[in-house]
Simulated scan of single mutants.
Amino acid sequence: MNKNSRIYVAGHRGLVGSAILNKLHEKGYTNLVYKTSAELDLKNSNQVYDFFENENIEYVFLAAAKVGGIVANNDYPADFIRDNILIQTNVIDAAYKNNVKKLLFLGSTCIYPKLAKQPLKEEYLLTGELEPTNEAYAIAKIAGIKMCESYNRQYGTNFISAMPTNLYGPNDNFDLETSHVLPALIRKFHEAKVSGKDQVELWGTGSPKREFLHTDDLSDACIFLMENYSDNEIVNIGIGEDIAIKDLAAKIRQIVSFDGEIVYDTSKPDGTPRKLVDVTKINELGWHAKTSLDEGLEETYKWFKDNIEAVKM
């Protein structure tokens, strides 16, 4: 992949895609292609095939997906499995049929069994039952991984799959009904502070542990893998450290300067007890995360405040 390669970033407006697009610009890649969902519906196979036939795409970052937090995944499983399978099937097959040189498929660490050993090694895939609340999304992502592997085996393509841990950063989804835990906490504490509330209620017990990767690090890792990795095995992307949700909430409360109490609604689900990825493989390849959680939280909260009207829409 050189600076003039024709590179398509699918999902360029999302949390992951926007970070990849920005990082490509930053690294000097100049021949970038991206379309809004209004311009190109990735769930529509005819539109996708026509797009690939006309654009002469050489490299693809497949970051487009229907995503959401525990509530959205639990409430809309049909939407999550249908939309994601349609998107990735259309893009992967069109990439093959139009001789794309390389494709990076972005999965998720929710593909791993709910009670797998920690940290999560790549070989733990399909060794146990999934977390029920996001099973539909996880199965869709596993299908994408296996589709890439199968096309490589049958057609000799160069399609790789990366599994990022929990992500956060600019352009995140801060909607309280559909967001992931970290942006939801930022918004809850901020709005509680602004409205003068004396407490913030959080779901679950606060005991589950999660690992959080800033999108600036993720985008750097994705470009690194596109330039340096070609194998059928999946690759984890993370920082190799996790934090309890209650400790994350305490950090965000401090950053937001909220003085009230944190109350936990233990009638609500916790989800997977722990989800820490083993990053030995990508570290041995030569890539390491650089953004600390404290630094990333400060930056993300600043972005939220600077864009608060837009993220509320």
Results as ranks from 00 to 15, higher is better:
residue 136 A to T: 06
residue 276 L to W: 12
residue 250 A to N: 15
residue 67 V to A: 15
residue 113 P to N: 12
residue 303 W to Y: 09
residue 307 N to F: 01
residue 278 D to R: 06
residue 279 V to M: 00
residue 48 V to E: 03
residue 277 V to T: 15
residue 290 K to G: 00
residue 270 D to K: 03
residue 152 N to W: 08
residue 163 M to A: 09
residue 102 K to R: 15
residue 168 Y to H: 06
residue 246 K to Y: 12
residue 282 I to F: 10
residue 176 L to T: 07
residue 192 A to I: 04
residue 60 V to Q: 04
residue 29 Y to T: 13
residue 78 A to S: 14
residue 20 I to R: 06
residue 77 P to G: 14
residue 145 I to C: 06
residue 291 T to F: 06
residue 264 Y to K: 00
residue 260 G to Q: 03
residue 186 I to A: 08
residue 261 E to W: 01
residue 293 L to A: 02
residue 268 K to A: 12
residue 58 E to S: 00
residue 99 N to Y: 09
residue 58 E to D: 13
residue 49 Y to L: 04
residue 223 I to N: 07
residue 277 V to D: 04
residue 201 E to F: 05
residue 239 I to M: 09
residue 221 A to D: 11
residue 238 G to E: 02
residue 71 V to D: 13
residue 152 N to H: 05
residue 192 A to T: 10
residue 172 D to I: 00
residue 45 S to M: 05
residue 7 I to F: 11
residue 53 E to L: 01
residue 228 N to F: 00
residue 151 Y to P: 09
residue 3 K to E: 10
residue 84 N to Y: 00
residue 117 K to G: 04
residue 286 G to F: 01
residue 37 S to P: 02
residue 161 S to F: 10
residue 21 L to W: 13
residue 13 R to F: 10
residue 109 T to Q: 07
residue 297 L to H: 11
residue 21 L to K: 08
residue 192 A to G: 05
residue 310 A to P: 08
residue 250 A to V: 08
residue 51 F to P: 01
residue 226 M to T: 00
residue 31 N to Y: 08
residue 24 L to A: 01
residue 20 I to K: 01
residue 303 W to V: 14
residue 66 K to Y: 11
residue 276 L to Q: 02
residue 94 A to K: 06
residue 44 N to D: 14
residue 126 L to S: 03
residue 123 E to L: 13
residue 109 T to C: 12
residue 167 L to T: 04
residue 5 S to D: 11
residue 158 N to F: 10
residue 131 E to Q: 11
residue 155 Y to A: 06
residue 36 T to S: 13
residue 201 E to W: 11
residue 224 F to N: 01
residue 12 H to P: 08
residue 75 D to I: 09
residue 13 R to L: 06
residue 108 S to A: 03
residue 267 S to N: 15
residue 160 I to N: 10
residue 180 H to G: 04
residue 24 L to E: 05
residue 10 A to Y: 00
residue 17 G to W: 03
residue 229 Y to P: 05
residue 271 G to H: 10
residue 134 N to C: 13
residue 172 D to K: 05
residue 99 N to I: 12
residue 313 M to L: 15
residue 139 I to M: 13
residue 288 H to G: 02
residue 240 G to I: 02
residue 229 Y to G: 09
residue 141 K to Q: 09
residue 304 F to M: 03
residue 96 Y to D: 15
residue 161 S to K: 07
residue 8 Y to D: 02
residue 265 D to T: 01
residue 80 F to Y: 10
residue 293 L to N: 00
residue 74 N to F: 13
residue 13 R to S: 08
residue 273 P to I: 03
residue 184 A to E: 05
residue 75 D to Y: 12
residue 69 G to Y: 00
residue 12 H to R: 14
residue 6 R to K: 14
residue 20 I to D: 06
residue 301 Y to H: 11
residue 287 W to R: 10
residue 240 G to Q: 03
residue 221 A to M: 02
residue 19 A to Y: 04
residue 54 N to Q: 15
residue 101 K to Y: 03
residue 183 P to G: 11
residue 244 A to M: 14
residue 50 D to Q: 12
residue 48 V to Q: 02
residue 84 N to K: 05
residue 130 L to C: 00
residue 255 I to C: 05
residue 77 P to S: 07
residue 207 S to P: 03
residue 148 C to M: 03
residue 238 G to T: 12
